[in-house]
């Protein structure tokens, strides 16, 4: 039986979809991936769809499900490498994958996940430091 491999890389799980997904295969992936997130305690899931030519509403729903389920298990999901034609089609279809993070490629996806985990670990909220205030705080 066909099966999509799930690789573990440090704190993350990496799935590269390279075959044409039909429904059963996609649903198996959803189940297996969630089981793996739970078993390994992964903090992030990267789904590489750069080789996928078609994402229809069913596939979109599976990706959304994986993101929501992973979140319940405290893991973030990033979809990487979506083809331009696929993105345009999804928008036209009205499917914008809310709640799913996206990145251009696996490398950027990793960076994004790292960033999210770090901000998760450090509880101190140091707001936005792009506009540092100079000196005059309390004395006013």
């Amino acid at each position: 039986m066909e099966r999509i491999p799930i690789l573990k890389m440090g704190h993350f799980l990496l799935v590269t979809i390279q075959v044409d997904l039909y429904d059963r295969l996609a649903m198996d992936l959803e189940a297996n991936l969630i089981r793996e997130v739970n078993r390994t305690g992964a903090k992030g899931v990267l789904i590489d769809i750069s080789a996928v030519e078609i994402v229809d509403s069913f596939m979109g729903r599976i990706i959304g499900n994986i993101a929501s389920m992973s979140k319940l298990l405290d893991a973030q999901t990033v979809v990487v490498g979506m083809q331009p034609a696929v993105a345009i089609t999804l928008v036209e279809l009205g499917l914008e994958l809310p709640g799913v993070h996206t990145a251009l490629n696996v490398e950027r996806g990793m960076e994004l996940l790292q960033g999210m985990i770090i901000s998760d670990d450090i509880i101190i909220d140091d707001d936005d430091d792009t506009f540092p205030e100079k000196g005059f705080d309390k004395d006013q």
Partner: peptide
């Protein structure tokens, strides 16, 4: 792009 739209619709 149109190919992708058509195949997605068919799907």
């Amino acid at each position: 792009v149109n190919q992708t739209k058509l195949i997605t619709a068919a799907s």
